[in-house]
Simulated scan of single mutants.
Amino acid sequence: MQTFQIEIEDQALLEQGLSATMRFFTALASNQKTYKNTTAIVTDIDSPFLNIAYLGEINTHDIHDICENMHEWFSHYQVPWTLVRTALSTPANLHELLLQEKFGVIESVPCMYCDLSTVDTQSHHPGIRVQELLSSDNLLKWIQPICEGFEAKDGGELFRQLNEKVSKETGVLKQFVAYSEEEVVSSGTLFLIDDVVMIHNIATKTSALRRGYGTTLTRHLMNVAKQLGFKHCYLESSDSGYNIYRRCGFKVYGINHYYVKKQ
């Protein structure tokens, strides 16, 4: 598992970034609940990273009760799920307490930030055309790279339908696809909320990896956000996307640790 260094120590960024991330998943949610400073969000998609319980400021004596309550709640929906320990989660020994409850880390994800006013967001890749999909689009092109990049189950159909529904009903999502010689090679999403923008679901087809498509698409999304007047841009990075985002000007301000119950 790759390790990441914190490059920006800023409490305001931690709070704003976590709020934006939770609001993104709330936009996709079919249901949610708050229990003892833990916010649980379910999307009904068969992925542990889309059914999440964010741990806040937790009392030590509540840990067992929270774990049991979350397990019971998510079991009702019959979906895999994760507990998330963020930089704002307490107490300091929360990791050890979760281990005692038989939860283990499956992934540690760098949370990254970029001040769009300070970086060059122009993309310079000849032969690449990026298209914003209209709200009436059925997102069939958009889901193709995501299916490969994130190994989506059921061909990503439920996730596609969910994103299409949220886009039409709320307008907070903008989906994009990148073409090379009229073939879809990459896709990504902007989440626009108040004065903050987030980049999500940057994915590239396996056959098109390491050709600069992901970087070009990321810069394009950053430029769109910048032209819309946004300054604060956040994202959660995968291991494979980390170097791309670093090249685009993003820096790590926090790390989210995802836990699942050990069998």
Rank of each mutant, 00 (worst) to 15 (best):
T39A: 11
N138L: 12
E9F: 08
E101R: 06
V79Y: 07
Y234G: 09
T86R: 03
A203I: 12
T3M: 08
M22Y: 03
G104E: 11
K165A: 08
C114L: 07
E107A: 15
V79W: 04
K33V: 14
E68P: 02
L55H: 07
I255E: 07
Q32S: 14
F150L: 04
V224Y: 03
L235C: 14
S108Y: 06
F191D: 04
G17M: 02
L18I: 10
R211W: 00
P80Y: 06
K33D: 13
M70Y: 07
L99M: 12
A12Y: 00
H76L: 09
I58D: 02
A40W: 07
G17R: 00
N93S: 08
K174R: 15
Q227D: 13
K261T: 02
C67L: 01
S108R: 05
S136I: 12
L98H: 06
F159I: 13
V42A: 12
V185T: 04
C233S: 15
S186F: 08
S123K: 12
V42S: 08
Q263R: 08
E236W: 01
I41L: 15
H124G: 01
E148T: 04
Y179S: 04
C248F: 00
T21P: 00
Q5I: 05
I193V: 11
K102Q: 15
E9D: 14
Y242H: 01
Q263T: 11
Y213V: 06
Q131R: 13
K205S: 06
R129E: 12
E107Q: 15
P80W: 03
L55P: 00
Q5W: 07
A20F: 01
V42W: 02
S75W: 08
T39Q: 10
T38G: 04
K33H: 06
K261M: 10
M112A: 05
I66V: 13
N59Q: 09
A152G: 14
Y258C: 12
H200V: 06
G249I: 04
L55V: 13
L99K: 13
C233I: 09
Y113R: 02
N138Y: 14
L97F: 03
Q161D: 14
R219T: 10
E236D: 11
K261V: 13
T90N: 06
E132G: 13
Q32K: 15
S207Y: 07
Y54M: 06
L83Y: 09
T82E: 05
D154F: 05
K262Q: 12
N256I: 02
D65P: 05
L133P: 01
E9K: 13
S30W: 10
Q2A: 02
W142C: 09
Y179T: 02
T170V: 12
S237F: 09
C111I: 04
I41M: 02
A225F: 03
K205H: 08
I41Y: 01
A12W: 00
V172C: 15
T38I: 06
I199N: 04
L98S: 09
H95E: 02
V105W: 01
Q161K: 15
R246Y: 12
L158W: 05
G155F: 07
A29I: 00
Q161V: 14
T216R: 09
F250W: 11
G249A: 14
L190E: 14
Q16A: 10
T90P: 01
